[in-house]
């Protein structure tokens, strides 16, 4: 495509500035995790590993990390099952209300988190009489994670031909056997992508979590949020934040290895 030199320079400048503004604050967090000053005075007067050492020994952060991982794994397991079931049910079937069901699955993520959080909190405590805690966080997270698995599996099923499953049935396989030997292997990478997204979504979520965690259970985002405003905790919070920034390269790297469908990894993740 032909494009004038001036326009190209303008576009290059815009893109560079935007990327700079995107990465500068993140770089600052990482740099500040080595900052000697406890209040992150700029420019740093010296660098230290003290805060990383302190963070490694923070039992609160460690416990919150374990809770976050457990919640993420359980919520992902539930959404893998329910999301796959819903996608397979809607596959190649046309019936009244099909679009309504798709909308229903997207709803928990399309509505502002505060609405979902408040609604689930109210249902847990006043309708079901449950004590808020680990269990209610998992249920809440699974609710908005189903959509990631559903979307990935549905996209894969749409590209898959029905003839393989039909051949399996013709050869006498029961539906479950067909699923185990034919459908599931074809779905595997879609399930992996959907599961990864679901875990990331759960791991990062804070708004719905604040409404469903109660006073005793802390996920990592809640721990960060509660310690954010405590001056003597900020260096440790900052180290945790820096570690999370570095770790956010992992899913991108995984996505590249899973077939380079990086764009698919970016959809449906508020």
């Amino acid at each position: 495509m032909t494009i004038s030199r001036r326009l190209k320079a303008f576009l290059v400048a815009c893109t560079s500035v935007v990327l700079l503004v995107v990465y500068l604050p993140l770089a600052l967090v990482v740099l500040n995790s080595f900052n000697v000053s406890k209040s992150f005075a700029w420019p740093p007067s010296g660098l230290t590993l003290r805060w990383w050492h302190a963070a490694a020994h923070s039992s609160g952060a460690r416990h919150a990390l374990v809770v976050s991982i457990e919640v993420g794994l359980l919520a992902t397991a539930i959404s893998l099952v329910l999301g796959t079931m819903a996608a397979m049910a809607l596959q190649r079937t046309r019936f009244f209300g099909r679009n309504a069901i798709s909308l229903l699955i997207i709803l928990p993520i399309a509505l502002p988190g505060i609405v979902t959080g408040l609604a689930l909190n109210n249902a847990f405590t006043s309708i079901f009489g449950l004590e808020l805690g680990f269990f209610t966080i998992v249920v809440a997270h699974a609710t908005f994670c189903i959509v990631t698995v559903f979307n990935n599996v549905q996209a894969r099923l749409r590209r898959m031909s029905a003839s393989l499953e039909e051949a399996s049935a013709d050869l006498g396989a029961r539906p479950f056997m067909t699923f185990r030997l034919v459908t599931f292997p074809l779905l595997r990478s879609a399930l992996l992508a959907g599961g990864l997204l679901s875990f990331a979504l759960s791991f990062d979520e804070i708004i719905v979590t604040t409404f469903t965690a109660g006073g005793h259970e802390q996920t990592l985002p809640i721990w960060i949020f509660q310690n954010l405003f405590r001056p003597n905790q900020t260096p440790v919070v900052n180290v945790v934040a820096a570690a999370l920034i570095v770790l956010s390269a992992v899913p991108i790297w995984l996505a590249q290895r899973l077939g380079g469908d990086a764009e698919a990894m970016g959809t449906a993740a508020p």
Binding site: D204, I206, P221, I224, A241, I245, S248, I252, G266, A269
Partner: peptide, 10 residues
Amino acid sequence: LMPLWASYLV
């Protein structure tokens, strides 16, 4: 995409 995966809170 990278910053999309970085935590909202962070």
